Amino acid sequence: MGSETMRKLVDVLVLHKFMLYRTLTNFYLIGRDKKKTFWRILKIDRTDPNELNLFEDPTRYTHEQIVELKKWISRGNQEYGGLRAETTCYGIIGFVKFLGPYYVLVIKKRKKVGEICGHTVYGVVDSQMIMIPYHSGETRVAGSAAERRYKKLLNMVDPSKNFYFSYTYHLMYSLQKNICNTERGNIHDETMFVWNEYLTHGIRRILQNTVWTVSLVYGFFQQTKCLVSNEEFILTVIARRSRHYAGTSLEVSVVKSLIPFSPQRVYHSLPGKMNQTVEKFVAL
């Protein structure tokens, strides 16, 4: 029963890879599922520098349909340069606004760091911040000394160090919580261990889903194969830092919060070693 529940943690569509295209007036984020069976489109308006305007196309496109749609968009914007590829990414970290325009933060590169009960866990390798509006006035503000200072402060947090996520497993919860939890929706991204909760608040409020975003957990993740009494198993150690007390001192954070830094160990057998997968959990 536990294993079956774990396989159904996420019962909504999951997009694994994205291509960001731009025209003069819009960004088009095209995402696909892991098996390349369908594609979805998110349109980001570039004409309003003060508001975050998003439109999610509910249609699930085939590959042939998405190719034709891109041609149609390019022809419609031919006078202004057509449809141009901006970047490839693996999910939206969030949107941020300082003194001028909105920026979108995306994951540029990822790496597989482990797997929990069939759910792949990734680490962030590289990220990118992209300015959304095209107005020259907003471009001047974006280049101001104050704006550069705020962007530099944000860039001090390096997502490529100790940030992890999974498309289908809720890393912000313990194993027991994931097995017993039946809640679905945005509530998972509002928990204390989701580092980018504030950055994704706007898009989650507008779209009422988390299809395009990833829930980043800041902490530690490592898996090691172990052998005890001729039985092989994988030891998984996960530690998560709370966004409520994200200071530089771990000891201070632990004192100030109820569970600000939540370590856990997950033990599970290697596939094929036992007739039935046995999963144990010990919370520290």
Rank of each mutant, 00 (worst) to 15 (best):
Arg7Ile: 00
Leu9Gln: 02
Leu9Phe: 00
Val10Lys: 13
Asp11Tyr: 00
Asp11Cys: 04
Val12Tyr: 01
Leu13Lys: 10
Phe18Gly: 01
Thr23Gly: 03
Asn26Ile: 00
Ile30Leu: 09
Ile30His: 05
Lys36Asp: 14
Ile44Phe: 07
Asp45Trp: 06
Leu52Trp: 07
Asn53Glu: 12
His63Ser: 13
Leu69Thr: 11
Lys71Arg: 14
Ile73His: 11
Arg75Asp: 15
Arg75Trp: 13
Glu79Gln: 05
Ile92Thr: 04
Ile93Asp: 04
Gly94Phe: 08
Phe95Thr: 05
Val96His: 06
Leu99Ala: 07
Tyr103Glu: 08
Val104Ser: 03
Val106Trp: 02
Lys108Leu: 05
Lys108Cys: 01
Lys112Ala: 11
Val113Gly: 04
Glu115Gly: 01
Tyr122Cys: 04
Val124Tyr: 00
Val125Cys: 11
Met129Val: 14
Met129Trp: 10
Ile130His: 11
Ile132Asp: 01
Tyr134Thr: 13
His135Trp: 12
Gly137Asn: 05
Gly143Ile: 03
Glu147Met: 08
Leu154Cys: 10
Leu154Met: 12
Asp158Asn: 15
Asp158Val: 03
Tyr167Lys: 05
Tyr167Ser: 01
Tyr169Cys: 07
Tyr173Phe: 15
Gln176Phe: 15
Cys180Glu: 14
Asn181Leu: 03
Ile187Cys: 14
His188Ala: 03
Asn196Gln: 09
Leu199Pro: 01
Thr200Asn: 08
Ile203Met: 05
Leu207Val: 13
Tyr218Gln: 02
Phe220Pro: 00
Gln222Gly: 06
Gln222Asp: 07
Thr224His: 09
Lys225Ser: 10
Val228Phe: 12
Asn230Phe: 09
Phe233Leu: 08
Leu235Asp: 03
Thr236Ile: 10
Ile238Lys: 05
Arg240Cys: 01
Arg241Leu: 07
Arg241Glu: 10
His244Ile: 15
Gly247Ala: 08
Val254Cys: 03
Ile259Arg: 10
Phe261Lys: 02
Arg265Ala: 12
Tyr267Lys: 03
Tyr267Ser: 06
Pro271Arg: 10
Gly272Pro: 06
Lys273Arg: 08
Thr277Lys: 08
Glu279Gly: 10
Val282Asp: 06
